[in-house]
Design a protein around this nucleic acid. Structure first.
Lengths: 347, 347
DNA sequence: TTGAAAGCGCTAACAC
DNA sequence: GTGTTAGCGCTTTCAA
């Protein structure tokens, strides 16, 4: 592999001149520039980014730690981040933590050893204090999707998302509203529930314990919806904190002959592709992932690139940037039937 | 950030000795080893992998170019590859090409500039000759999932997968078999179809043009299934080259009152999570992704690490390693009804 | 066993 | 404008 030295020799100039030419540091004489150009593609020279990084003290690489890249939701975030990063000249190390704090820690150490300029972390769930293990991280981190209090984070305003759902079902006249929480211990799931509950309580309504189901963020958990429908007074609306859970509920409801939204309204969260495709299509809360990625990248690069380019938006205050979610009303929600007949199994 | 020099100074030894200690190159005296250990964690020293890479001429990084990381199928492959790579001490650059050959080319150049030791590529579809743009790549490449003739590739034996489907439906007595091709121009989709067709032809059957639908690898394409059912002699079995298409077909079939598998059998390919969850659950061909990843990593690292560790499995012959797929029979396939009544809409 | 020193490929002073 | 050179952090001869 040819080096800058080879180019210099072939073009009969010094390495400094080649470097200047490459980086546009100073003007180089037309004649020499031409010779350099020729030498470069005669030799097939390509700059060695690692060597440059060693010299300038910045690698223009960042780490991306995700719980599970085969989850399309995280995949979508990864995609948006990676594209935004590439557009700004950074390359991305993928680290799939399997939602395991220990793996995550190991990855963060690897990334530090690589001297990445920064990292995005969708942190693994942790029963203890998740913050602890980032104290030692020698790298600027921006937390994505799952915010960490007191640390730079970018996430959808999940609490607001919950409120939007509440407002919608309230408007439709529902009073018996159940929720299915996929991983209630994850802070943003909790926030979604809190938003819903607070908005409901403001109108005097509450969500009794019997109407709250807890489980994982899986389709299988969604199938537990029949436990809700078997209640003496089954809910007329069900909010699941993730679309995937809603799809599970939809499957079971449909199989058991319940009509959506006539017998029961169903609302999800995330707006995955499938939500659009099932019939009735799913009312849900959409997250603006491109916007989220844009903010996250800005936040990290503002920290990394010291140049006061435009507005110094990152003051000393470390905070969570909330991205506004949007209610997408589709066909799975409808007004509560006036003759509030108890839903029963059909065919 | 402390360097090896700082450690050497603090431990009152030379940098060479610290390096030897770190890499186990030679024995170091117990007393000194102890002092080095103390210095390292007093200073919080971490080796600079970039600097090491520059010196030893290998970065222990690899690139991973995928068409779309938010597609769970590619996500799953990425995950398996990344884990296998991490286990062997390599770090992975994620490159999402959006299935765009031009982006792919740019990524490959970036990766070369980073001096990655190798790369995995699930190549972007290309109307021209996809091979061309890899000629210049200065990096060992192993193609994954979408093999490139004459280049090291690892992919499921899609042709065999197609044959397995044929054998299954033949055994069930079907004779009117339709196919829905998601992106027929992709070689592995074509192989799946070829396998089916060949096996069918061996028994004197064929797939008439009217029974062949072409489209994208999307749920929406699957919805076109009603065009098949509207035929004068609708098929009794439908093979879709991807599960996602099968799910689309399932949605439409179910909505239109067709009973699966009574009215029509449905078979997919890939075995995505959703296939297990719908009712009836989907008969499909499962790809062994962990196995595929394992082979791919072996293949690449055999090329990278010259040491003749065990068996020199990679001879000079460059070839495609086929991973054996497995037919997963679930509830969406059944014998063709003896009284071959024309399926009609129910409800 | 250990230290000294060269050098991986590059950029950034600095002198001309 | 351009050449020379030091040095980024590390490993690896080579002597001692």
């Amino acid at each position: 592999m040819p080096t800058i030295k080879d180019v210099a020799r072939a073009a009969r100039v010094s390495v400094g001149t080649v470097s200047n030419y490459l980086n546009g540091t100073t003007q180089v004489a037309d004649a020499k520039a031409e010779r350099i150009r020729e030498a470069i593609d005669a030799l097939g020279y390509h700059v060695h980014l690692g060597a440059r990084g060693l010299r300038v003290g910045a690698t223009r690489t960042v780490g991306l730690v995700v719980p599970n890249i085969s989850n399309p939701f995280f995949g979508e975030i990864a995609r948006e981040l990676e594209h935004a990063l590439t557009a700004r000249g950074y390359q991305t190390f993928l680290c799939d933590s399997s939602d395991d704090p220990e793996r995550e820690r190991a990855y963060l150490e690897n990334l530090a050893n690589r001297r990445v300029d920064g990292a995005f972390v969708i942190h693994a769930h942790d029963d203890g204090e998740p913050v602890r293990r980032y104290e030692e991280a020698a790298v600027p981190i921006v937390f994505v999707d799952r915010p960490v209090p007191g640390r730079p984070s970018v996430a959808s305003d999940n609490y607001l998302g919950g409120r939007l759902v509440a407002e919608h079902v309230l408007e439709l006249g529902h009073e018996r509203i159940a929720v299915m929480l996929g991983r209630p211990e994850v802070s943003n799931v909790a926030a979604r529930f809190a938003g819903l509950r607070d908005a409901l309580m403001e109108t005097g309504l509450d969500v009794p314990d019997a109407y709250v189901l807890e489980g994982r963020q899986t389709l299988e958990f969604g199938r537990d919806v029949d436990r809700l429908m078997a209640l003496p007074a089954p809910p007329t609306a069900i909010f699941t904190t993730n679309d995937i859970v809603a799809v599970g509920a939809w499957l079971t409801l449909t199989e058991h002959g319940y009509r959506i939204p006539d017998d029961v309204s169903l609302i999800g969260f995330d707006d995955i592709e499938l939500s659009r495709s099932i019939r009735p299509s799913l009312t849900t809360v959409a997250q603006d992932l491109p916007e989220l990625a844009r903010h996250a990248v800005d936040m990290l690069l503002d920290q990394i690139e010291p140049e006061a380019g435009s507005k110094p938006r990152s003051t000393a205050v470390i905070e969570t940037v909330p991205i506004e979610p949007r209610l997408v009303v589709r066909a799975s929600t409808a007004p509560v039937p006036r003759a509030e007949a108890r839903p029963r199994k059909a065919g």
